[in-house]
Design a protein around this nucleic acid. Sequence first.
DNA 1: CACTATAATGATACTAGGACTGATAGGATT
DNA 2: AATCCTATCAGTCCTAGTATCATTATAGTG
Lengths: 147, 147
Amino acid sequence: MEARIEKIKQQLQAQGYKLTPQREATVRVLLENEEDHLSAEDVYMLVKDKAPEIGLATVYRTLELLNELHVVEKMNFGDGVARYDLRNNDKNHHHHHLICVQCGAVDEIMEDWLGPLEERLAKEYNFKVIDHRLDFQGICHRCNEKQ
Amino acid sequence: MEARIEKIKQQLQAQGYKLTPQREATVRVLLENEEDHLSAEDVYMLVKDKAPEIGLATVYRTLELLNELHVVEKMNFGDGVARYDLRNNDKNHHHHHLICVQCGAVDEIMEDWLGPLEERLAKEYNFKVIDHRLDFQGICHRCNEKQ
DNA sequence: CACTATAATGATACTAGGACTGATAGGATT
DNA sequence: AATCCTATCAGTCCTAGTATCATTATAGTG
């Protein structure tokens, strides 16, 4: 945890930025909720608990900055809000999404399911894959269990 | 009743849509006439009682939207009128996209490639798939052959 | 330590884009 | 032609995100 913050601090400083208390609080929230895909508003709420005096604009600015430094990834799921994800440096972007149409939760799957498909695409369709995106819409396990 | 409306509201919001008064009135009519197969015109007449200022186009748009979200099923009995049915269980529709980053073409693939994956999702993640979206970015066969 | 330049912040007004609407003209289908 | 449906238009509303600006914190320098 501390090590990862230290690393991010160095990434910032390498570009001439500072890890201010507000930025550190924001980064901590992201680290503590690494599994989720938080929106800026979500992050704002969570950071407020740690540092109540922080402003919304600062959170937006921090997330934007972290995105530029490739510390987080800014993603769009079509519900009108940007969501932010810490990036793992092992950068296997074989992550797919399970989007719950009932509660709006977004879960991630890290398995690589599309390798065989990409081979077929190359052979049968003469299509050279550069990137892909796989999202499932449905009912998540939490909502399933509720009923 | 209220619970079902709430559920539909969440489904809408998960995709960035809103449950407006007009839409809610329409949904209520559908719920109250769940046994029947109402046509759009039928729905329009019934909604008019609740919300006289509603426009016909809005009813059509609402039904179309609910159809896309798999809240309602649009059926055709060959009498030239589409009829709408609330539904709980859904069939999947399979279409994937090959998006060429060079010429911008978008090809569609109708094969069902994700059936096995969806089974695994149900078993291992307890996630009930309603719909999915699989897009590949790459170089299409036309561009490949050109070079 | 004091001084300074500037990076960063908080509050808030603002913007831009998209969702949504009713009316109606026109397209599609039978 | 008649009926069902869709496209378009002009306008409203909402809100995620940005720009502004006065103020404060910070790092570097001497």
